[in-house]
Design a protein around this nucleic acid. Sequence first.
DNA 1: GACAACCTGACC
DNA 2: GGTCAGGTTGTC
Length: 266
Amino acid sequence: MPELPEVETIRRQLAEAIVGAEMVGVEVRQAKCFAGSQKVEGEIIRAVARVGKYLFVHFESGRGLAIHLKMTGRLVIDVPWYDTVPHTRVVITLADGRKLYYWDTRMFGYVKVIERVGEEQLKVKAKMGPDPWEMTEIELLRRLQKTGRSVKEAILDQSLLAGVGNIYANDGLWKARINPRRKTDTLKLSEVKVMLKSLRHVMERGLATGGASDNSYVNAKGEKGSYQNEFLVYGRAGKPCKRCGIALKRIVVGGRGTWICKTCQI
DNA sequence: GACAACCTGACC
DNA sequence: GGTCAGGTTGTC
């Protein structure tokens, strides 16, 4: 899916577009991608929040939506093309005639109508780690030392650190010169400090470029981002390391594709 | 910790 | 035909 920068891009655009709007109905085209009551007529949208990679749409009534895009989910407002294409799973109509589309080829993601969305958001927040800007290096070191996993698996664990996905994990570790297979208990505080700074940096690039559209990601207006044009290592097997020039390798860590420079990342 | 599962599609 | 895919959850 979209990772933190992509989800945050969608959140900002969606907040801009739909806060204050009134809902009139939900059309469920794929039951697998929807849960809860379809009765939303008259609900006024008050806010759009993000926790890690989850989105929460709050209504004035206290009800709301919980949305997760997983791998291929898109959330697009007022792009009528989505009315007629395959894989549009849920369509929410607003009183002004605009429609909010949930599109998802693989159907891992979902839109749920939640009766008390504030509580739901707190529940999700509670099981999730801080995001990279809320996290201190001491806290991250402490959390890493509690597990014996590889550092890459650890930073992808949303309960340890929220919002990091495979793209930014790979690029962040390369920038920090840390080998993804390193066991977390071997990391020194100085390394954790550099890693956190690097993760923040690549995710800030992701935000600044509107996200990574290597695959299916588009923002809430249906537009691609451009972070894929500056991937540091993600998906770049065989291409030269941007630091030392040797060919990057693809390995597997924790079952996920992982790209490294064998000389730069110790 | 390693895998399988949930799905469809792209690519070799 | 096989492999891989930005995520999460649940099983041995």
